[in-house]
Amino acid sequence: MSFDWGIIIANWKFLILQGLMGFGAFGGGTLRLAIPALVLGFILGVIVGLCRLAHRPWIHYPAVLYVEFFRGVPLVMVIFWFWFLIPQMTGQRLPEYTVALTAFVVFEAAYLGEIVRAGIQSVPRGQVEAATAGGLSYRQMMVHVILPQAIRNMIPSLVTQFIVLFKDTSLASIIGMMDLTKAAQTVSQREIRPFEMYLFIAVVYWIFTYSMSRFSQWLEVKMSPERAPTRRAALRAATAEAPA
């Protein structure tokens, strides 16, 4: 068995510029799909999460239905629906990229909405009472007291979900969108070098997901100034723990 790592170099423009970043004749692109999907999915997720927490039944129940429905069906199926359904309903085919982005935003918002809901509920009730007693309106309380604490508690789950989303973008290749996976598949079929190609994209995916995980750890510390021990406190703790 012999390997030819040279084909990565020979095809790097196609793999990285086209497949990963989406610059090229085919459109698509893993990052060009993942980044807007993540941002739009999160915005929709916050709306879904807040609606689930609402007391009014006509706001609450549609949100419950939305979450339970999209969490209960496979992502591949949602992608296929949009792929086959939109042309039937509108009479025209949308580009693969648009279909994939819509499917991801709609699907991910269900998961992200649950994370947002759990994050808000993790803030102790006393915080709501203190803000209410202080005369803050619902909006002021959410913006200044509840959400800053909730988002901090959400970071680990949010980043996990973002990592899942990032990897799931590889499913966009099944409707023919040119992402990193599809690019690797194309090269691999032409050159008959599947091992080199799929190992290479595994490394690329991993580099991104690992960076996200490290970023999450950094952000958690950064957003919790009060939890970061002062230098003196850290020194004191270190001396106390040291064996005599």
Partner: peptide, 26 residues
């Protein structure tokens, strides 16, 4: 509510704000 101040058993200070920010928010 602005006319009535309240102090709780569990303090309920906003943990992500300094003492000064806790006081100036409202």
């Amino acid at each position: 509510r602005a006319e009535v101040g309240m102090v709780f058993q569990q303090f309920n200070l906003y943990p992500h704000m300094t003492a000064r920010q806790n006081i100036t928010l409202a």
